[in-house]
């Protein structure tokens, strides 16, 4: 009887510890969620205010609202957002796919070459944009693609292909080696192995890399800034700038446009976010891709 009680209280004790842990866990999650949602909250409530209202009411509290600013900026941002989609989606797909191919090549090749190329790529990933200003502009205009979709995509690829290769190398490193060897024994060539075995196994990593590059290139301000010469080719990131600076900033429209422009990456992250996280979890837990 006494013994029973004892084990019971032990179990209760363990449960309590578990509960406390869970509560702390949740509190931390809530704090982080608030911190992360905070900018969105500010963008939305201040975007709903009137041009004068946004100046006289406290920034953190809602005031008299109308959809006016949102409607205005949405119309104005339609084209830039479409442009941004055209710039970034191909960039992200191509960078990730070709990056994955490069990563597969490194995976297969001898260690020494691998390390060397890998280092070069890692350096390329961290080259500051500004350094490339002149050569990039010269190069793109010399091939006659200044202020064109292909020109901007090519310029973006120059920056994001190394990122794709680098990230995909990290994801490929955890693939089971013998599974790929077994495909060779089964008679598959590199192309088949890449498409039928490597890509499906590395899909979570592929999606993570895709999302990462998509968001990075969506926010990229530098490439369109130097390569776009007419307003019709503006990217969302460029168009956003027109709401700040210049003569007299309309703060409500700034907030609204910032919100609209971040909507696309946000939606993608909401839908594909779990793959993003799963891709990175593959390392922590040792799970294969």
């Amino acid at each position: 009887m006494i013994k029973n009680k004892n084990t019971n209280s032990n179990i209760n004790g363990a449960k309590n510890v578990k509960n406390v842990k869970r509560i702390i866990h949740n509190i931390i999650l809530v704090i982080f969620s608030i911190l992360w949602l905070f900018p969105i909250y500010v963008m939305v409530i201040d975007g709903l205010k009137s041009a004068s209202g946004v100046l006289i009411t406290p920034i953190l509290f809602p005031a008299k609202s109308s959809l006016g600013p949102f409607i205005t900026v949405t119309t104005a941002l339609e084209r830039p957002i479409l442009n941004s989609i055209i710039y970034t989606v191909p960039t992200a797909i191509i960078s990730t796919y070709i990056g994955a191919m490069a990563a597969f090549y490194f995976y297969k090749k001898a260690r020494m070459i691998n390390t060397l190329l890998f280092t070069i790529i890692a350096i390329a990933t961290f080259v500051p944009y500004e350094i490339t200003l002149l050569p990039l502009t010269k190069f793109i205009s010399s091939i006659g693609l200044l202020n064109t979709y292909p020109g901007i995509i090519i310029a973006m690829l120059i920056f994001y292909l190394p990122t794709g290769a680098l990230l995909m190398s990290i994801f490929l490193a955890v693939l089971p080696k013998t599974t790929l060897e077994s495909a060779r024994i089964d008679g598959a060539n590199d192309w088949t192995i890449f498409n039928k075995v490597v890509l499906p196994l590395a899909m979570p990593g592929f999606i993570s890399t895709f999302i990462f590059i998509l968001i990075e290139s969506w926010n990229n301000f530098f490439v369109p800034l130097v390569l776009v010469t007419t307003p019709g080719m503006n990217s969302a990131s460029l168009a956003l700038m027109s709401y700040t600076g210049g003569y007299g900033t309309l703060y409500n429209e700034s907030f609204a446009s910032a919100f609209i422009a971040s909507l696309i990456p946000l939606v993608i992250f909401v839908f594909l976010g779990r793959y993003f996280i799963r891709g990175f979890q593959a390392f922590g837990t040792g799970r294969k891709g």
Partner: peptide, 15 residues
């Protein structure tokens, strides 16, 4: 891939 052999790996290495 040209050797035309069958192999069963220690960990089976299935897809």
């Amino acid at each position: 891939e040209e050797r035309d052999i069958g192999m069963v790996f220690q960990n089976w290495a299935l897809y």
